[in-house]
């Protein structure tokens, strides 16, 4: 079956996390199905940051949640150090979850409004007993005052500070992989810069491996080593950050870049690279899912789904019949 392919995956023993042919689906009522993620694969080496970009509804968050098995993907595997999380149940799964932590988009709603900030960060160590970092040390590492955190509740903090609390909560368990789902999208530019700088520092200090999801390509480029572009549940392109921005090969990546106002890149106006609106994931187009908006679409695109393949030599991969090389 034509999936998006796995040509871009590296040997299993070289990577920490490997995601293969991930499918996430949700019931949409009246017997229909939302095909949120359809055959996405990627991997992360230890210490690497992978950025995932795409527009709303393209399956970024569904992918993130499938990694931590909340909810479980319909098909595919998620291997952490060779251990397939999708085969785990109950207690075994609970135990492995602490190795993967997550930071969410909405800094306010991801904290329980009725608990004090310190209690929120302490929850992990309480549940797991020994083997966690010192709570005060982590609070200080994310730039919060432990004394204040002991008495205040989330609504007494600003959005940026709440996001620091979320980061502390994730870090205190010493996870190997941290999945950041739009961690700065709700923040102002100056606070965004503070959080991005903090993430880079912490990554160094705690030797983290990051999955960084965002819709803003400039933000993703700033933190990522490699970038995965998604469209309507499929992989379009995967490349080292600099390469992806400098030489986008997939028509959708180009459109995405061109749509960024004042990007300073030499690209035609976005309205010549993309038209219309994304189709419904309940009833995605046949063949290439981007074909309804793609200026290059040809008859083959409707018939046959493009397989991911290497281009430009090296580690640049694209899933398109007619890439721009």
């Amino acid at each position: 079956m034509a999936g998006s392919g796995t040509a871009h995956l590296r040997p299993r023993d070289e990577v920490l996390l490997q995601v293969e042919n991930l499918y996430v689906e949700f019931p949409a009522g009246r017997g229909r199905t939302v095909r949120a993620v359809s055959g996405v694969s990627f991997d992360l080496a230890k210490g690497e940051t992978l950025g995932i970009v795409g527009e709303s509804g393209c399956g970024k968050s569904s992918t993130a949640r499938a990694l931590i098995q909340l909810p479980r993907p319909r098909a595919g595997s998620v291997r952490l150090d060779g251990l397939d999380l999708t085969s785990l149940r109950g207690e075994a799964l609970r135990r492995v979850r602490r190795r993967l932590q997550m930071i969410f988009q909405d800094p306010i709603s991801s904290l329980n409004p009725r608990r004090r900030v310190r209690e929120i960060v302490e929850e992990g160590p309480k549940v797991w007993g020994r083997g966690a970092l010192d709570v005060d040390e982590v609070l200080e590492a994310v730039g919060l005052d432990p004394a204040t955190a002991a008495v205040r509740r989330p609504h007494e903090f600003s959005g940026g500070q709440c996001q620091r609390v979320s980061i502390a909560r994730a870090l205190v368990l010493e996870p190997e992989v941290v999945i950041c789902d739009e961690p700065v999208s709700a923040l102002d530019v100056s606070v965004q810069a503070q959080i991005l700088a903090l993430l880079e520092d912490l990554k160094e200090r705690y030797r983290l491996t990051l999955v960084f999801i965002a819709h803003d390509l400039a933000v993703v480029k700033n933190v990522s080593d490699r970038i995965l572009v998604m469209y309507l549940g499929k992989t379009c392109e995967l490349a080292p950050s600099e390469d992806l921005i400098a030489r986008p090969a997939h028509p959708y990546t180009k459109a995405l870049l061109a749509a960024i106002p004042g990007s300073g890149l030499d690209l035609p106006p976005a309205d010549r690279l993309i038209s219309g609106e994304p189709p419904s994931p309940v009833d995605p187009p046949s063949g290439c899912r981007f074909r309804t908006r793609c200026p290059r679409a040809a008859e083959r695109c409707a018939r046959e789904e493009p397989e991911i393949r290497p281009v430009n030599g090296g580690d640049h991969y694209v899933a398109c019949h007619f890439p721009d090389l």
Binding site: V189, A193, Q194, A218, S263, G264
Partner: peptide, 24 residues
């Protein structure tokens, strides 16, 4: 000036240090 330097830009290299405005 600080606001402009705090915003990441596509033309900047990856892992480029953004200007951080302290406080709020």
């Amino acid at each position: 000036e600080a606001l402009l330097q705090a915003a990441p830009r596509l033309t900047d290299p990856s892992h480029h240090r953004l200007r951080v405005i302290p406080g709020r």
